[in-house]
Amino acid sequence: MPDLTLTASPPLDGYHKQFGDTALTEIGDQALVSIAVPLGGADALDSAMTGAYGTTFPAPGSTALSKDGSVRFLGLQPDQCFALFELAGNDPVEAIANVLGDTGYYTDQSDSWAMLRLSGPLAVSALERICPLGLAPAAFPQGSVARTAMEHLGVIILCENEDSYVLMSARSSAPSFLHAVETSVENVS
């Protein structure tokens, strides 16, 4: 019987590149679970989240961090957010469901997204080439999240700080996504 262990493949093969002081790196091994709010169940979900994570459901455009810093909730839709945390094991939905019970509807999204961190002095000028959103601190402060289109790709952008952004895009088009971001950094360096 041949050994048929299944090993995981990361979307961008662990990509990392330095452009002077600016770095573009794949973020691997993240779990991403979508949490949808049942109709009429917003209060119950908020309670459960407060109890379990010490934070409430984030409004679209903002993110909320759990008290222990292990989970960041991304406010993407009025009735849906993404929980982002370190992947451990094969059932990220279970990790959330165990804690929030049936106060929400959960769907695994951990494999759907390729994730990049762009950080350093060139980050904003590179993003200016592909991101239609205004990124000035007043408009998109630390902790902001948004979903938009960049180079014909759907991208989620998260501001970690003025010089550091996390970008997520569909796994299947990861090479095109990487090419778009990489070209942007090259074009401004």
Binding site: S34, A36, P38, L39, G40, D79, Q80, Y105, T107, D108, Q109, S110, D111, S112, W113, A170, R171, S172
Partner: peptide
């Protein structure tokens, strides 16, 4: 709008 139903794409997930 009065239905309790939620949709999300999982084309990429599986």
């Amino acid at each position: 709008p009065g239905m309790d139903v939620h949709l999300i794409s999982v084309t990429e997930q599986w």
